[in-house]
Amino acid sequence: MYEFEIQNMTCGHCAGTVEKAIKAADPAASASIDLTAKSAKVETRVDPATIKAAIENAGYPSSFRQI
């Protein structure tokens, strides 16, 4: 599991956009978005750099760490 810190995520629409980006990169991923903490916990078998790129392509700078 990975935790992504996501910048510029300010509303429910943003959270939905991030979740869609994660699912586009890995349809089998399990994602829990925390708008208040501006983070997402993602269970994925895809390289986390791929998930990060998808989030950033959606317009949200991000970083990740394994948890």
Rank of each mutant, 00 (worst) to 15 (best):
M1C: 07
M1E: 08
M1Q: 11
E3W: 01
F4G: 07
F4E: 08
E5H: 12
I6K: 00
Q7E: 15
N8T: 13
N8L: 12
N8V: 08
M9N: 08
T10V: 06
T10I: 04
C11L: 08
C11H: 11
G12D: 12
C14F: 01
C14K: 04
G16K: 04
T17C: 00
V18C: 05
V18R: 00
E19K: 12
K20V: 03
A21T: 07
I22H: 14
K23F: 00
K23R: 12
K23M: 06
A24K: 15
A24W: 00
A24D: 11
A24Y: 00
A25E: 07
A25I: 08
A29C: 11
S30H: 13
I33H: 01
I33V: 15
I33R: 01
D34R: 01
D34K: 05
L35K: 02
K38A: 09
K41E: 08
V42T: 07
E43G: 06
T44P: 05
T44I: 05
V46W: 02
D47Y: 06
P48I: 05
P48K: 03
A49Q: 15
A49K: 14
T50F: 00
I51R: 03
I51C: 09
K52D: 05
K52S: 13
A53M: 07
A54G: 04
A54M: 06
A54Y: 02
I55Q: 00
I55F: 00
E56Q: 14
E56T: 10
A58R: 04
G59P: 08
Y60M: 10
S63D: 09
S63L: 04
F64H: 09
F64C: 03
F64T: 07
R65I: 08
R65V: 13
Q66G: 14
Q66S: 15
